[in-house]
Design a protein around this nucleic acid. Structure first.
Lengths: 212, 212
DNA sequence: TCCCCGAATGGACGATTGTCCATTTTTGCC
DNA sequence: GGCAAAAATGGACAATCGTCCATTCGGGGA
């Protein structure tokens, strides 16, 4: 056996992962509609029965792939937030920079995200994943904006700023998805921070959080 | 004949339109993936061969449906812009209100728009339609923002404001698509105008363009 | 070395897809 | 009312879909 240092179960989980990666690549390249069982097993270089063996069926594989892609997104976001300096404004800036970084905002990841979320509208299981991702992001963002609002401003301003920021970044993802070749990350970030520095001049400037 | 007052070509175009509407309804309700020929002709109450007869094939029907949906969007937008008072700020406000109005931002239209634009990533014909829509909107918006920028501000601010506004509204559409029941149009509009009034205090307030 | 059992294979299967066309129905005109 | 042409029908067709299982493969324990 070529991979003699592997145990059996490691090899098994290799094939599981290979199927997930092949499914995600297919979704990214040719879309969810054209991602058939034949397409996936050809890309993975495995045999037809593997999907049924490891996942029970095609749908379960796609769901596992969605779960995998979601976990990767969170891993990057949480790592970047953990690395951010103390302070609410710095945390917000870290989230924005993370969401616009090449590690998260790249053709493959964005394509997968839009394909799966598109399916979420008519598939309850997918909907649960994208909802979790959205709600979690919104909650963290609202909490952070409460920390940058001056004490005398109404609480609603923090909520509005959180939604404004999430919506704007969301819209920029869409722009990136449609025209990745014309997208300028620094320009996109500057637009977001121009809005934020206009709303909260003491917390943000055009580069992100003030005083970093 | 039941519809004796119709000419032949009018009845023919009725069936064409019925197929387009049935396709769009199917796309909105069950998604593009599950929209099959059988599904469309069942909804239209017509026979199997009609799609081939009127459009030459399923793909051509879907493209015609995309064209139809796009034309409806523009018709509403241009009507609302034509009804806007003079002035750049008023035109921008009219565009935002139009894009957030129930006539444009409703479950059916939004579902169709997202389904078709999702397919645009892997289908050049669809891509052309969504690009046209996006580019046209951006151009009009940039021109309008040039009109509200104070003379001493750099030209780039107008461009940034246009992108910021389009991105934010785009993000709100996404929010609406995912959670139409929790969406508050007035709240969404207020967030957009809060950002704009912060960037251009003399042109906008929380309700839209100033002095209307 | 042989055996065993889980891993992996790939073909068979019925269901469903989109296309196409022979046939029937309806229309406008004489 | 009859006739040619257009419109509409719905079943046949090959291709492809996802599922499943009889079979083969391969490595660790006896």
């Amino acid at each position: 056996m070529l991979l003699s240092s592997y145990t059996m179960s490691e090899r098994t989980s290799d094939n599981r992962l290979a199927l997930i990666e092949a499914a995600l690549t297919s979704i990214a390249e040719i879309g969810l509609i054209r991602t058939s069982v034949t397409e996936i097993i050809d890309r993975a270089g495995l045999s037809r029965g593997m999907i049924h063996l490891h996942f029970g069926g095609k749908d379960a594989l796609i769901i596992a792939a969605a779960e995998h892609a979601n976990a990767q997104y969170y891993q990057i976001l949480e790592r970047d937030m953990a690395a951010a300096p103390d302070g609410a404004a710095a945390r917000i800036a870290a989230m924005i920079h993370s969401d616009l970084s090449a590690e998260t905002l790249n053709p493959r990841s964005v394509a997968i995200w839009y394909e799966l979320r598109g399916a979420a509208r008519t598939n309850a299981t997918f909907a649960a994943y994208s909802d979790t991702r959205d709600i979690r992001l919104r909650r963290v963002m609202e909490a952070a904006f409460s920390g940058v609002s001056p004490a005398d401003t109404p609480q609603s301003l923090a909520q509005e700023a959180a939604i404004a920021t999430i919506s704007m970044v969301e819209g920029m993802w869409t722009d990136y998805m449609l025209h990745p070749e014309n997208f300028d990350r620094a320009f996109a970030a500057r637009i977001v921070f121009r809005m934020l520095s206009s709303l909260f001049p003491e917390a943000f400037d055009l580069n992100g959080a003030r005083g970093l």
